[in-house]
Each structure stands twice: as structure tokens, then as C-alpha cells.
């Protein structure tokens, strides 16, 4: 069992909603798999496709972007920018054989349970997908 694949997942959380949601998961002690590392950005709209590619190139097995729900963005519509950009990146990754390794989710500051669910679910999906193929090359 020891050599079971443990995915490395990198997450970008916006400061106002989803990072606070991740904190709330902690405050409420909602457990989730420890495979995730969070980078805090002020807004999901800050996340550039280059960051995602960098993470995948460096060996991330999955990348999770979380932001405020549409309409709730602290910066009015930063998450809409994120939506367009991340969805384009999701499409692009299909051509690179990295389908399913990038995910965008909305998590509010009060959705600690949802944050834990999203992370658990995504971790399981990545576990099923197996290691990032870029790692071997």
C-alpha cells in the first residue's frame, strides 16, 4: 500500500471567498486529503494560464483554482475573467494530454464543508487519472 500513488495538487485560492472557505473548513475541522498545497492570490482573476502550465511542467498532478461565486466577487467580476481564462486553459490542456488535471470551482467564505468536498473529490479524480505524464519525460 505504501507505493500507492499520492497526487501532488496545487491550488490557487482567492483571498476573500475561497481562501476564507478553506480556513473555515479548518475551523470546522472538515477533513480532506493532505495532498493539496494552497497558494493565496487576491482574486481568481489573477491566476494566469502560465502559472498553471508552470505547475504542470514542474510535476503537479492536478491544479485547482477556486474563486468567489459568480456575482460575489470582491472585485466585482474578477471571477468572470478567471472563468473565461481557466476554461480556455482547460480546453487547451486536452491537446497536451493533460485532460482533467485542471479544475475551477466557486467556494464562498461560508462554504467550509464545500471546500473540503471539492478537494476530496478532485484528489480522488486525480488519483484515478494517475501521475502527470510530463513528470516521466
Amino acid at each position: 500500500m505504501t507505493d500507492e500513488f499520492e497526487p501532488n495538487i496545487l491550488a490557487f485560492c482567492c483571498n476573500w471567498c475561497s481562501y476564507a472557505g478553506a480556513d473555515l473548513a479548518g475551523v470546522s475541522r472538515f477533513q480532506y486529503p493532505p495532498n493539496i498545497r494552497i497558494i493565496r492570490v487576491m482574486c481568481s482573476g489573477r491566476v494566469e494560464p502560465a502559472f498553471i502550465l508552470e505547475a504542470l511542467k514542474d510535476g503537479a498532478d492536478g491544479v485547482l483554482i477556486t474563486g468567489c461565486h459568480i456575482g460575489d466577487c470582491h472585485y466585482i467580476d474578477g471571477n468572470r475573467n478567471a472563468e473565461v481564462r481557466i476554461n480556455n486553459t482547460i480546453d487547451a490542456l486536452k491537446y497536451l494530454g493533460l485532460d482533467g488535471r485542471l479544475r475551477l470551482e466557486w467556494v464562498s467564505a461560508s462554504e467550509g464543508a464545500r471546500f473540503a468536498e471539492v478537494v476530496s473529490e478532485f484528489t480522488e479524480e486525480i488519483r484515478k487519472l494517475g501521475p502527470n505524464p510530463l513528470k516521466e519525460t
Partner: peptide
């Protein structure tokens, strides 16, 4: 953030 996003959400000590 090793409390809200680590020790409070994971129980496996080695992995945490």
C-alpha cells in the same frame, strides 16, 4: 498556514 489548512484538516501526522 499550517493550522487552518493543515493540522485542523488532516489527521495523518506524517503527511501533515
Amino acid at each position: 498556514n499550517i493550522r487552518e489548512q493543515d493540522s485542523w484538516v488532516h489527521t495523518d501526522k506524517d503527511m501533515a
